[in-house]
Simulated scan of single mutants.
Amino acid sequence: MARAESHATRSAIEGLIVVSILMPGLSAAAEEAARATYALRNAPRPQALEALREDAIAAADRFASAAADPTGSGF
């Protein structure tokens, strides 16, 4: 189970890195989403994991919004 979760996390991060390279205007949002995702691995206790999960979801939402904005600097 842990191995599959680690692979899924790594896959998600790799996608964000590729986007950062191809679309430099999205790199800040991509980096924020990647850091928030990796932070899940270092939750000090189960209660903190929920807050970190919410942070990661919010960061991913911000990234998606930035990517979807045709007037933003991502394109």
Score class of each variant (00 low, 15 high):
residue 25 G to A: 08
residue 40 L to F: 10
residue 22 L to S: 08
residue 60 A to T: 11
residue 72 G to V: 07
residue 36 A to H: 01
residue 38 Y to P: 02
residue 20 S to H: 00
residue 47 Q to W: 11
residue 8 A to C: 04
residue 59 A to P: 06
residue 24 P to L: 06
residue 71 T to E: 15
residue 12 A to I: 03
residue 10 R to I: 12
residue 59 A to L: 00
residue 72 G to P: 09
residue 54 E to Y: 06
residue 21 I to P: 00
residue 38 Y to D: 06
residue 68 A to C: 06
residue 23 M to C: 03
residue 24 P to E: 05
residue 2 A to G: 14
residue 12 A to W: 03
residue 51 A to E: 15
residue 17 I to N: 08
residue 20 S to E: 00
residue 48 A to F: 08
residue 9 T to G: 07
residue 47 Q to I: 11
residue 7 H to K: 13
residue 14 E to Y: 12
residue 54 E to V: 13
residue 45 R to T: 07
residue 55 D to I: 01
residue 17 I to A: 11
residue 42 N to W: 13
residue 17 I to S: 13
residue 64 A to T: 09
residue 50 E to F: 13
residue 11 S to I: 08
residue 64 A to L: 10
residue 56 A to D: 01
residue 6 S to Y: 12
residue 47 Q to H: 10
residue 4 A to K: 09
residue 72 G to I: 06
residue 60 A to N: 09
residue 53 R to H: 10
residue 75 F to H: 09
residue 37 T to G: 06
residue 69 D to N: 12
residue 54 E to N: 10
residue 71 T to D: 15
residue 25 G to S: 09
residue 50 E to C: 11
residue 50 E to S: 14
residue 41 R to Q: 15
residue 37 T to D: 02
residue 8 A to S: 12
residue 27 S to I: 06
residue 25 G to N: 10
residue 68 A to L: 07
residue 42 N to M: 11
residue 4 A to Y: 01
residue 35 R to H: 00
residue 16 L to E: 01
residue 3 R to N: 06
residue 26 L to V: 11
residue 15 G to N: 10
residue 49 L to Y: 13
residue 47 Q to V: 12
residue 64 A to G: 07
residue 6 S to F: 12
residue 16 L to H: 04
residue 53 R to A: 12
residue 42 N to F: 13
residue 4 A to F: 06
residue 75 F to M: 03
residue 12 A to K: 05
residue 5 E to C: 10
residue 32 E to H: 04
residue 50 E to T: 15
residue 6 S to W: 12
